[in-house]
């Protein structure tokens, strides 16, 4: 099996689905001739033509709204928003249209679109190339929210998202794009949207994380393992629909839970996880459910020192693990 990066895995997922089903089209800024600013769609315009790989005008609402219309008329559009930070002009089309089309039409219409967007910080992207926006969309019923953290899942979940009959928000942490390689099958496979993955097994506490933070949590777990703390890590690769069973199963075993996300704290997805654990696993807990998150500041600054201060990192996660284990 070839070893691929996440960016290559996303590319392969797109390419395979386009070859498999002529209804699949891509639209977005710079996705065609340039192949995307992160090179995700490189070569696809040459292979599938400019009608199926559309370099759109610089207009996010237009990208999503056009994708919705094309989906209504039988296509399976994959829209790329160049950076998650720029998705907000399309919020009305996503929240009021895509998310509500099935519901408001009593199931008469569906909206099978995928909206891909790179998110997250740690690349000196400053306020407008570092945002984590997943909680905004997880709050909107009618949208599925997927965040792969490794190449295998990136390809398999993307293929599942394209075949899904409903709108899927597909967020890729840009710092993980070329962070590491993983051997993945060349042939067709999907990873179902929903079931979570146990990324590391352990007994003393459960950490729930996704995206870049999943990797930082794994690194931290390795560190504290040497100190005798056994950490189990749940890869929250799908936020909606949420596989509560896996989270609760793990927490019931370890008795302690720490949620880590890079997104800011208030209203972040960690609050939802904490609430579910409190409601449904209260009597299994040996300590408070904790969150390690980005701070409640408007966004990640450009300065290296300030960016570092914003981001949870392996050292801080390790310390949070020690604190919770000792509780």
């Amino acid at each position: 099996m070839p070893a691929k990066t996440i960016v290559e895995a996303v590319h392969d997922g797109l390419r395979e689905e386009m070859a498999r089903d002529e209804r699949v089209i891509l639209l977005g800024e710079d996705v065609g001739f340039k192949g995307g600013v992160f090179k995700v769609s490189v070569g696809l315009m040459d292979e599938f033509g400019p009608e199926r790989v559309v370099d759109t005008p610089l207009a996010e609402s237009g990208i999503v709204g056009t994708a919705i219309g094309a989906a209504i008329n039988g296509l399976l559009p994959v829209a790329e928003i160049q950076f998650a930070d720029f998705i907000h002009p399309a919020m009305d089309q996503i929240m009021n249209e895509a998310a509500k089309i099935r519901y408001r039409s009593n199931g008469d219409f569906g909206c099978p679109i995928v909206i891909r967007a790179p998110f997250g910080g740690g690349i000196h992207g400053a306020l407008y190339h570092s945002q984590s926006v997943e909680a905004l969309f997880a709050h909107i019923p009618g949208l599925k929210v997927v965040i792969p953290s490794n190449p295998y899942d990136a390809k398999g979940l993307l293929k599942a998202a394209i075949r899904d009959p409903d709108p899927v928000m597909f967020f890729e942490h840009k710092r993980t794009y070329r962070l590491f390689r993983q051997e993945i099958p060349d042939e067709d496979y999907t990873v179902p949207i929903g079931p979570l993955r146990i990324a590391r097994e352990g007994d003393d506490l459960t950490v729930i994380a996704y995206g870049l933070m999943l990797h930082y949590a794994l690194e931290a777990a390795e560190t504290v393992a040497k100190e005798g703390i056994s950490v189990e890590i749940v890869d929250l690769r799908t936020l909606v629909p949420l596989d509560k069973e896996t989270i609760l199963g793990s927490v019931k075993k370890t008795g302690k839970a720490l949620v880590v996300h890079e997104d800011t704290r208030t209203g972040g997805f960690g609050g939802e996880i904490a609430a579910i654990i409190a409601e449904e696993a209260f009597e299994f807990l040996d300590g408070p459910v904790r969150r390690l998150t980005g701070p409640d500041v408007p966004a990640m600054p450009f300065s290296k020192a300030l960016e570092h201060e914003f981001m949870p990192n392996p050292e801080r996660i390790a310390q949070a693990m020690r604190d919770l284990a000792a509780y």
């Binding site: 009618g142 599925k144 009959p165 409903d166 929903g194 979570l196 949420l242």
Partner: peptide
């Protein structure tokens, strides 16, 4: 709300 919404847990 969705056409299909099932979470087949991995049975962690």
């Amino acid at each position: 709300v969705f056409a299909k919404y099932e979470v087949r847990s991995t049975k962690y």
